[in-house]
Amino acid sequence: MIELNYRDSRPIYEQIEDGFKKLIIGNVLKKDEKLPSVRLLATKLSINPNTIQRAYNELESKGYLYSVPGKGSFVNGITKVDEEKIKELIDEILEKIKELKYLGMTDKEIVKILTEEMG
């Protein structure tokens, strides 16, 4: 379910966090579906259970998960807006636009592509 990449420079908890985000956004993990227990994931990935707990806590504080004491963590669906992530993605788009301009595309062409994509 979650794959760790040891050549990735991101810390492990972040890789786990991003991995679950992707699964939730891609609707692979549906609303109210139970996530694997900390113990199961720690054993499977052979990493420290606290690292997994940290990833789960981050996801919960960002609104992707909710936890039921004694039961585990569940998918919340996307209810809360992850402002931080939105800002990060916008920055990424702006970065790419800069690159496209450098490669010789005009503003008009870029806008055209974007409007086509949006429908």
Partner: peptide, 25 residues
């Protein structure tokens, strides 16, 4: 790791393999 999460075993480990320590500690 299963022992740590299920029974709360306390582990002290010395190693030169820092890549591995990063995963488990």
């Amino acid at each position: 790791m299963d022992d740590v999460s299920s029974r709360g075993t306390t582990v002290l480990v010395s190693s030169h393999n820092l890549r591995e320590l990063e995963d488990v500690c």
